[in-house]
Design a protein around this nucleic acid. Sequence first.
DNA 1: GAGAGGTAG
DNA 2: GATTCTACCTCTC
Length: 430
Amino acid sequence: MSRALPGRGSIALVDVNCFYASAERAFDPSLEDRPLVVLSNNDGCAVTRSPEAKALGIPLGEPWFKLAPRASEWGLVARSSNYELYGDISARVMELLGRYSAWLEVYSIDEAFLGVSGTPAELQQLGYSMKTAVRRNVGVPVCVGIAETKTLAKLANKWAKHNPAFDGVCHWDAVPAGQREKLMAGLSVIELWGVAARLTKRLNGLGIHSVLDLARADPVRIRDRFSVVLMRTVLELQGTPCIPLEEERIGRDQLIFSRSFAAPITTGAGLRQVFGVYAQQASARLAKHGLQAKVLTAFAATSFYNPQASSHPSVCVPLPMPTADPVLLARAAYALLPRIVDGVKYVRAGIMVTDLRPTGNQAPLPVFENPHEERGIGSLLEEVSRRYGRGSIGLGQAGIRGGPDWSMKRDMLSPRYTTHWAELPIVKAA
DNA sequence: GAGAGGTAG
DNA sequence: GATTCTACCTCTC
């Protein structure tokens, strides 16, 4: 086993404990110590559980309709997803972490990899500093895992989370080798980053059950039988870094706007409205990132849980020119409408824009000029929405009252404490 | 290059 | 009766 030399580069994984639930608690102390779940869009199912909710045996992904009847008996509290709040809290956490290392990869809304260096004692100390600072300055609890590779940092983080003795910070190389092997021997491969149900099944078939089994496997054999991805996992478990810290992702490769509806939509006219709204959202997001799309895909789907009346129409529309114009995007999405059968219950629909590219600073050839873009329809819509609220203006009938109700169900939404003046938390001095 | 399969959070 | 959403990668054809 290799040992970290002082000063050699290491990777810290900082991860907020049950992020959405912790974010809700940060501004509502009455939620402290109570079983709490945060629900998915449409108040569908539990996507985050506080430790107390986990202790009740509530599985991840449990539908709310099953939990609701027993909520008061358990003292269980639910909150609708409040992405505006979570996004803002996430940004605060990341900004703070950025002060500890310039080498920061924001991996997801609630976790980040940091390039760090120092002696084991210094790294341990760094971990505790970050943990304390995030808790005090942002108000959410984090755990820190530190190791020589991302995969091991993930593992160390998991260990820190489940073993109170670490007090939330685990430096892999500071743990005696014997203890590490014992941990790996007792952990199924499914706990690893990058290994899920399918791979676990196949690995088990080869007699590889524990993380230790996989760490001792021959990387080349794994590559031949599985993939380069799993080979990297093996090498990383053995201490060889294969997954580098990544530069900040500039553009995305695709953007998807899709929701399940509170009530199914059964008419083409209803879906037309939906696509109008998504086109506006896509336009705004593209503009924000300085991107234009070349291809748009529109789709609708019936319920996955009703296989007899299953229908999943979709169309892929090449756009005449790269664009972020809401009118053009909406028109492209309407190409799905002829495929929509009135009376069929569509519970989900969406648009996806792909083949994204930065907005060129060259003017388009006159033939390809787009009259809407020229007049700035996109930014106008955005400006009005920002000033007068969502739904105040829309393309066609989008956002106008009187259409079918396809809004998202969010019955238990907390205030947007940090991003809206009217919803600021109120502090009372005793 | 598209689509399927797999995975993450 | 009801069961999230977005985004990536690799492999295959």
